[in-house]
Computed example of a mutant assay.
Amino acid sequence: MKLDMHAVLVQPLLTEKLTSIRETTNTVGFIVHPDANRVQIKQAVETLLKVKVARVNVMNVLGKVKRLGRFSGKRSDWKKAFVTLQKGEKLEMYESA
């Protein structure tokens, strides 16, 4: 499926765990489009953020089942990507956060 590069990256993922991973292994996290693959994610990060990517790991996260009284619902599933940058590369948007 052909996706627009701006549609591939939904938003950056900022958690305490990813902050420690970013500082030690130069890896950043993104919430990505559910239909995006590794190649599309790599191309989107390299062109939009102007950094060199060493590797991309992708994980599908299943939504939790939640209840409110007798009613049951499910949060939506989503996909996250861990992007490892090459040596010497860093993203400026994470430096100020």
Rank of each mutant, 00 (worst) to 15 (best):
M1A: 08
M1I: 09
K2M: 04
K2S: 12
L3C: 10
L3M: 05
L3G: 10
M5G: 08
A7C: 03
V8E: 15
V8Q: 10
V8F: 08
L9I: 15
V10M: 10
Q11H: 12
Q11G: 03
P12L: 07
L13H: 11
L13N: 08
L13K: 10
L13I: 13
L14C: 12
L14I: 15
T15C: 11
E16K: 15
E16A: 10
L18D: 01
L18E: 03
T19E: 14
T19Y: 15
S20Q: 15
S20C: 05
I21W: 05
R22S: 11
R22F: 10
R22C: 05
E23R: 07
E23Q: 14
T24W: 03
T25K: 15
T25S: 13
N26G: 04
T27M: 10
G29R: 05
G29H: 06
G29N: 06
G29V: 07
G29C: 02
F30L: 03
F30C: 02
F30P: 05
V32L: 00
V32F: 11
V32Q: 04
H33A: 09
P34F: 03
P34W: 06
D35Y: 12
D35I: 05
N37R: 14
V39W: 02
Q40Y: 06
Q40H: 05
I41S: 00
K42N: 04
Q43N: 11
Q43T: 09
Q43E: 13
A44R: 05
A44Y: 05
E46I: 06
E46K: 03
L49S: 04
L49P: 02
K50V: 12
K50L: 07
A54C: 00
R55L: 05
V58M: 14
V58P: 09
M59D: 00
N60E: 07
N60D: 14
G63C: 07
K64A: 12
K64M: 05
K64Y: 12
R67L: 02
G69K: 09
R70A: 01
R70Y: 07
F71Q: 11
S72R: 13
G73P: 02
S76W: 01
S76I: 05
D77T: 00
W78L: 00
W78Q: 02
W78V: 04
W78I: 02
K79S: 08
F82W: 10
F82V: 06
F82S: 09
V83M: 03
V83S: 08
V83F: 07
T84F: 10
L85S: 03
Q86V: 13
G88M: 07
G88Q: 08
E89Q: 15
K90W: 15
K90R: 09
L91C: 05
L91I: 06
L91Y: 14
M93Y: 00
M93H: 00
M93P: 02
M93A: 09
S96E: 08
A97R: 11
